[in-house]
């Protein structure tokens, strides 16, 4: 990583017919950074994220993810990133171990490596009692923690987390964030969307999207100072209010 930037986006745009879903956004994320990607429903977050993980082609602009181009090297991008969303987590009808083995296999890890990873996860997350239980029987918080660990299996450079903690109880939510910190300490870059504004404060840098554009970006502290707000929730409300997206 020459310049330490793992995501570099310049004027990235996505157009659906006449509708500009993402309107020339630009930002950079450094290695090991926790980047909070915020915005109202329909502001274009999901569309932007889809372009970055290589499943949607931009209309114009440039973007490099993990050193690869989002137009031409989507397969390489997919190999080098992890993805976790609230909607797609693990298979409910497989056990924890089977899920780990399956996802490890998808990313081409060897049997030996997978076994090793299972061992590490069992100790780190204290899974002794649940490793052979069906995922469907676990509480939501556990599922989300496991799902995050699985997205880290192949040691990706960047992990994209799409509302990872929705509906999770406050204690587990915080445990989850400690896992995020831990991954960031090891040099993984985290790209997170969330509707919990207190979680947004845990990020190193956040961007707030309104109507397809990035309206504000910077460390939470700086944004609060700039907008004279006590917390990020106020910043968010100031920016997004009155400019409801057209949908």
């Amino acid at each position: 990583m020459k310049d330490n930037k793992v995501i570099a986006v310049k004027n990235l745009t996505k157009r659906f017919g006449d509708f500009l879903a993402v309107d020339a956004i630009s930002f950079e994320v450094k290695a090991g950074e926790i980047f909070g990607f915020l915005g109202a429903n329909g502001a274009g977050k999901t569309t932007a994220m889809k372009m970055l993980i290589g499943i949607s082609k931009p209309s114009s602009g440039e973007a490099m993810v993990a050193g690869f181009d989002v137009y031409t090297q989507t397969e390489l991008i997919k190999k080098n990133i992890g993805y976790m969303s609230q909607k797609f987590a693990l298979y409910d009808d497989l056990t924890v171990r089977e899920n780990i083995t399956f996802f490890g296999g998808i990313y081409g890890l060897s049997r030996a490596t997978i076994k090793e990873k299972v061992k590490v996860l069992v100790t780190e997350l204290k899974l002794e009692n649940i490793i052979d239980q069906l995922v469907g029987a676990l509480p939501l918080g556990w599922k989300q923690k496991l799902s995050f660990s699985v997205s880290l299996l192949h040691d990706p450079k960047i992990v994209f987390l799409d509302e990872p903690t929705g509906g999770v109880d406050p204690i587990t939510r915080r445990q989850f964030w400690e896992m995020i910190y831990h991954a960031a300490d090891k040099g993984t870059t985290l790209f997170v969307t969330t509707h919990y504004m207190d979680e947004a404060e845990y990020c190193d840098k956040v961007s707030i999207m309104v109507n397809g554009k990035i309206e504000a970006m910077g460390p939470p502290k700086l944004l609060k100072e700039r907008y004279g707000a006590g917390n990020l929730n106020e910043v968010f409300l100031k920016l997004a209010r009155g400019s409801k997206p057209n949908e």
């Binding site: 915005g39 109202a40 429903n41 502001a43 509302e163 929705g166 509906g167 509707h195 504004m197 929730n233 968010f236 409300l237 997004a240 209010r241 409801k244």
Partner: peptide, 10 residues
């Protein structure tokens, strides 16, 4: 309000 952004929630 689950899954809804802070503005809409407010």
């Amino acid at each position: 309000t689950t899954g809804v952004d802070p503005v809409s929630r407010k």
